[in-house]
Amino acid sequence: MRILVTVKHVPDLQSNRSFTDGTVTRTADDGSMNELDEHAVEAALQLVEAAGEGEVYALTVGGPDAIAAVRKALQLGAHHAIHVSDVGIAGSDVFGTAMIIAAAVRKLHAEAPLDMVVTGMAALDGLTSMLPTALAAELDWSQLTLASAVSVADGEATIERHLPDAHETVAASLPAVVSVTDEANKPRYPNFKLIMAARKAEVPVWTLADLGIDPALVGGDAARATVVEASERPPRENRRHVTDKGEGGRELAEFLIEKGLA
């Protein structure tokens, strides 16, 4: 089993997230690996453990600070890390990002075949959940998305998928792009030895040139959609709070009636 896991560096959920010139403000101080990608790393490690052999690569695409995301993946047990970084990447949309990740996957796949790419179900900043599908289409690999369980047998992967209207079981041949939800597993805690090793690990940096990507095809200029305005929402006005001293329910009902909501 040779698996590549994608991990994204995102602003911390608890930090004051903001936009600068139409893109997300990204700093090393309050950024970290997308929490949901911990489940992707865990799923990959479990598949390798189940197969009894193999290795896990963690890959991130992003500016210099994004290296923190792959270091976190190494702490969790990924065996190798790759950081794709280039000034030309900034402002990429989902399709640009998918093109870059696909090129990196092909480069590794050419060295020795990969069986799978595992991603998180969503990046907690962009939250589009589109990347895994775009990547599968770009690579022309099987697409198995939103897996709450994944298994591999006889060159085929099978997933369980819990959609609002139905629970599906979907199977497809390898190689496949699999996205996993936070229901899929419980990520392990990093152990001390791995934390120390991750700190010192050499992480190769690949540029667009290394990947043979024409810079005109990615980045903000190539993006099919551009943020033209971003503003912080004003706080809610006229907020009212009461303490229940026996009348709280009635006060709530009166509020709802007055608002035409009940």
């Binding site: 009212r240 709070h241 229940d244 009348e247 709280g248 329910g249 009902a253």
Partner: peptide
């Protein structure tokens, strides 16, 4: 917009 500090077991039935 509207908050009630209290137990839902008291507040909901009255509401």
């Amino acid at each position: 917009d509207f908050g009630v500090v209290g137990s839902l077991f008291d507040v909901i039935p009255q509401a």
